[in-house]
Amino acid sequence: MITDHWPLFGLRLHTPRLELRVPDLADLAQLAEVAAAGVHDPGRQPFVVPWTDGTAEEVARSTLQFQWRMWGQWTPGNWSLHFVTVHDGRIIGTQALDAREFATLREVGTGSWLGRAHHGRGFGTEMRAAVLDLAFTGLGAQWAVSEAFADNAASYGVSRKLGYTDDGIARHVVRGEAVVGRRLRLDRAGWAAARTVGVRIEGLAPCLPLFGC
């Protein structure tokens, strides 16, 4: 079985409404279709890398290529774990957890997107809560970091709800213009104090060496 060689395919996170899992090829096909249908208002670009600028076919293909690239580049010292988010049997978006030198730094980052049809329903909070539980409970993280552009109130609101505090700014060039990003940081105590979403982790034990644990 594929999980004998790549146990991440057996990793599942369960919240009251969602399942997060590492996608197989059929899941990736659905994810690409969600991306192609639209992730954000075309008039705004919420990502540092403007991967959603393009035709529907180009966005779908780049979604697949990015996921495959993350699989191929994985090492215990530098990994990026991308789940698909599933609600009522349908894939609605993706949630990532990544780290560099995790065994030493004990710090993770997060990133996510949802199809536009699924915005405004609290899914963003629930799916990030799931990977934070994986990080702090499952992997023994000490810190989690995130960043959102200054005008991305939805992402910033999720971070504040989950206990993050401000951690400075970063400046980027997006579509040829300077954009300010707000950095945020969450420590273990802040996560525990703000924790309200129940999360069940399945299939983690055989994956731990891949995370450097």
Rank of each mutant, 00 (worst) to 15 (best):
A37F: 00
G77A: 05
G124E: 03
V179W: 08
A35N: 02
T110L: 14
P206W: 11
A60P: 08
P7T: 06
G157K: 07
A37E: 09
R185P: 09
R116W: 00
A99S: 15
R90C: 14
S80Q: 13
H118Y: 14
S146W: 00
R171V: 14
L208G: 09
R128V: 06
W51L: 10
R195P: 01
A32T: 02
A130H: 07
N78S: 13
H5A: 13
S80L: 12
I169N: 06
H14E: 14
E147C: 10
R183L: 14
A129V: 02
V59G: 04
V108D: 05
R17P: 00
M1R: 09
P7M: 05
L97T: 09
H87R: 15
T104P: 00
S159C: 14
Q45H: 05
S146H: 06
E202A: 12
M1A: 12
E147F: 00
V59M: 04
A32N: 02
L134P: 08
R188D: 10
L210Y: 07
T196W: 06
A144Q: 05
S62I: 04
H5W: 10
V197K: 04
L11I: 10
R21N: 01
Q45M: 15
G54K: 09
D24C: 08
G168Q: 10
W79S: 05
G115D: 05
L20N: 03
T110N: 11
S155G: 11
L132P: 01
W71L: 15
G72A: 13
D166V: 11
D151L: 05
A193P: 02
Q73G: 07
E57A: 15
L208S: 10
F211N: 02
T85P: 05
V131Q: 13
V197R: 05
R185M: 09
L105A: 11
L18Q: 02
R183M: 09
R182T: 05
E126Q: 11
L97Y: 08
E126I: 06
R183G: 07
W191L: 02
Y164R: 10
A60V: 09
R182S: 09
E101D: 15
H82M: 12
R160F: 02
G163L: 08
A135T: 13
Q65L: 15
A96T: 15
G124N: 06
H87Y: 15
R116G: 01
A194M: 05
L81G: 01
